[in-house]
Design a binder for these strands. Structure first.
Lengths: 250, 250
DNA sequence: TGAAGTCCTTGACCCAGATCAATTGCGGGA
DNA sequence: TCCCGCAATTGATCTGGGTCAAGGACTTCA
């Protein structure tokens, strides 16, 4: 059974003030559509480490991550686990039309989710093309990310995997905080070494070793264990095995 | 530049007789919607081995696979390749709103595709919720498949990977040809050893060895190199590391 | 001020799968 | 029928990353 999240004060947040208003599944909604969504929404918060829902559990809601980070993981009977999704603010959880969770959802940091009861949401989706359109777009983006990730899992070396993950997190962070600034990039790793290992299909020891190696080689600078500075993003992208001028052709 | 596929005779196939009519992106369309789709569609065929489109190329159409099998692959500068999609009849190629291909698309067998010019298709999608709904559903299915695949790539052994792939192909084939029959299952592998390796993040030598091992251990029976019989599906699923009663809870 | 818990690092060793290198088998064309 | 070319198999060897094990660095709590 899913650990119950705290039901946050519903009045704490109006859609108009919502930090993910323009990137979440509701991004394209008109004011009247937003009002209708508002009527079926409620907030829940979870603490770092809490499991939001277990794979196979009944799931009577869908949700957007408002703040914090969560992970989607799959586990085999013998305990091997693979992360299959990293949920950042504005990302969507759950699948319309599916009543049971297909993956474990775990809060990596403290998180707040904006939940919608599933049935009303599904009904609303039929009548509100703006929601379905946005959800399609987001799902296509996730599919692209999953395919990029498949290349990482299937063909990259441990060092390239770590560099790829750092590049993904760094880029995402840069986009969020300091829109398109040049120069050295600094950010906090939102994942433990173990979570990084689950993301990359490695062991935590290998993650630790490769992070140390990238540090030793000057590709990254560490303050403590979590704060990362990338002096030269192109160098990092080279290490990741990515085309450093990714997709710049034409 | 993409190799030009033969433009097949447009009158060869009416939507009403189309083998993928009820599973493709047009599955939910009403007769009048189908008529409008019919007006912007054309068929193209490609021979086994032909590249349908190269990653980065301009792509002015989207399409459904009518018959045959194609693959989606990503390639690194040094030549390492990873398959990121296996396109079977009824699967959709291309992304509305994207003008350039993100992956190489290669015909593995002779294929026929039902193409729609991208712009008219996009316009139609806005006005025809049935198409967008179906595309969302198909994209969510693909995302689920990609996540399953991520577990395979990240955490399974070579033997488990091969067993997983055989199970996926076998199940798909069973669903297609002999709806839900019991007993031994026989099908043709639509992939070379090399393509299987690209799918699973292995070398072709390892694929060959593990196929031989599964044959030696009686998990599968081979006639020639491509025809596979699975005497006991549960045994194969065990070898794949999957819960043999997958998702049967409640 | 210490004890316990988490997370992380580092070392030593090992093995699954990669790499390199022959062969084998088979379908098609002259 | 023989030969060519491609797909596949199989063997020998190597190695990247897993496994096992021993600390180290912080944080929290008493």
């Amino acid at each position: 059974m899913a650990t119950l999240g705290k039901i946050a004060d519903t009045h704490a947040l109006e859609c108009a003030d919502c930090p993910i208003r323009h990137r979440a599944v509701c991004a394209r909604c008109e004011p009247d559509e937003l009002d209708r969504l508002d009527a079926i929404k409620y907030y829940r918060s979870f603490e770092a480490g809490q499991t939001v829902i277990w794979s196979g559990d009944a799931m009577d809601f869908v949700a957007s991550v408002v703040s914090g980070i969560a992970t989607l993981t799959q586990t085999m009977e013998d305990g091997r686990t693979q992360m299959v999704g990293l949920l950042l603010p504005s990302d969507f959880v759950g699948r319309p039309g599916r009543s049971r969770a297909a993956y474990d959802v775990v809060a990596t940091t403290d998180i707040v989710m904006c939940c919608f009861r599933r049935k009303p949401f599904e009904e609303m989706m039929v009548r509100t093309p703006h929601i379905a359109q946005r959800l399609l777009e987001m799902t296509l983006d996730e599919l692209d990310a999953a395919r990029e990730w498949m290349l990482v899992l299937g063909r990259k070396t441990a060092r390239e995997k770590i560099a790829s993950l750092l590049a993904i997190i760094g880029r995402r962070d840069a986009a969020l905080h300091l829109g398109g600034k040049r120069g050295p990039l600094t950010f906090d790793l939102p994942l433990t070494r173990e979570a990084m290992a689950d993301y990359l299909g490695l062991t935590l020891e290998t993650v630790s070793r490769q992070v140390s190696a990238l540090k030793r080689d000057g590709v990254i600078v560490l303050e403590g264990k979590r704060r990362v500075t990338v002096p030269d993003m192109n160098r990092l992208l080279e290490e990741a095995g990515d085309d450093s001028d990714g997709g710049m052709l034409s």
